[in-house]
Design a protein around this nucleic acid. Structure first.
Lengths: 210, 210
DNA sequence: TAGATTGTTAATCGATTAACAATC
DNA sequence: TAGATTGTTAATCGATTAACAATC
């Protein structure tokens, strides 16, 4: 029921949760099936059942899954019962956009502090928070017990910032910097680089079709 | 030398390209090896050699790879020789940040038009461009021959916008909307949802350790 | 030459899918 | 009951890695 679940399976659970939450918002919708969920996500029903089977039995033969119950279980599995405080490092255009994003709260996260090393940015507002000096970061993170950080700093500053975050007790980093980071075992890193994603898609765009 | 390369391989090529470009910027650095590149990316050397072998032979036994030559070849393979014009749909906080991002140009892309359906946003500036009415989108995209779009609209508008983009000839969509999109075969979609990434990482954050 | 590193093959490892008994 | 759908097993499929001959 646990024994090192494949990471690729863990990666799909948030997608299941997201789609189930969407279903829960559709009036009169109480139950679903692996088939329906799979169809909406563009994957196979067998994969959904297999993925869930790593964690227990959440459905009923003949009737499928109770949406709100499955949401509860996924929320448990992913440790989303309480809101996670998140530190945002970097208050440039992207940092500002992330600080202003209304979508975190509803899904288990809240940016509670923003840092930048640029004196021109320290003291300005970002999504209702005052940008703090990155030099005070370690202290603040320790005080607040923050375990998750979003990295929105320039590529050249990313590794040093990641090192500082890890040293301050952060165990999960979502990085928007276009560089590969090195972190100690036990620390999770997830990347978002729009150009990498676009470049993968251009492979499929022949120069002259359409 | 071609025969449907696995998508997971295609997805790593932009990472190789990114790291190689980084190496190229390090003074005196001319050559590299699968071992060095792998180390910097945190993957195995064998995987890099295997991935590249799908496309040809780009290295030399005993000496490795010439960095600038490998960059050229990857640039060819990914169709990044010419700059791709990109449409951005949605001029909210995130859209503004993307429109202002300086990192596209250098890596093969340029946002050349921005659309929004909100009359309050039409006419304002986004990264040096004037936001245009989304109602005119299809015409503009056809005129400009745009094949790539970035979706930064609310979840509820995402599918309809994607449909409109595809109808206008777009073949690659990078979506920041937190929903799964349905597109016809031959159209590529790539997703970016920070919450999904954070939720995957919280699985590994036990509630009470550290 | 000796050392290094490629490209490739075969072996291993892991993930997905098909199928079906169980059962609601 | 008949129909539907689960959870699970076994089979298939695909990706990664180890190993090494070739060769710079």
């Amino acid at each position: 029921m646990d024994h090192t679940i494949p990471e690729i399976v863990i990666g799909r659970l948030p997608l299941y949760l997201r789609e189930l939450s969407r279903m829960a918002g559709e009036s009169g919708k109480i139950k679903t099936s692996s088939h329906e969920l799979a169809q909406r996500l563009g994957i196979s029903p067998a994969q959904i059942r297999k993925d869930l089977s790593h964690f227990g039995e959440f459905g009923k033969q003949g009737t499928g899954y109770h949406i709100s119950y499955l949401i509860e279980r996924l929320t448990d599995i992913l440790h989303l019962n309480d809101e996670w405080p998140v530190a945002l490092v970097g208050a440039g255009f992207l940092g500002q956009a992330l600080a202003s994003y209304r979508g975190f709260q509803r899904r288990g996260f809240a940016i509670t502090c923003v840092f930048d090393s640029d004196p021109a940015k320290v003291g300005v507002k970002a999504g209702g928070l005052v940008v703090q000096d990155a030099a005070t970061m370690a202290t603040r993170l320790r005080e607040a017990g923050i375990r998750i950080a979003i990295l929105a700093v320039p590529a050249d500053a990313a590794q040093a910032t990641a090192d500082a975050l890890v040293a301050a007790g952060v165990g999960a980093i979502l990085s928007y910097a276009p560089v590969s980071l090195t972190v100690p075992p036990g620390v999770s890193v997830s990347y978002s680089d729009p150009v990498v994603q676009l470049q993968q898609m251009t492979y499929h765009l022949s120069i002259e079709n359409e």
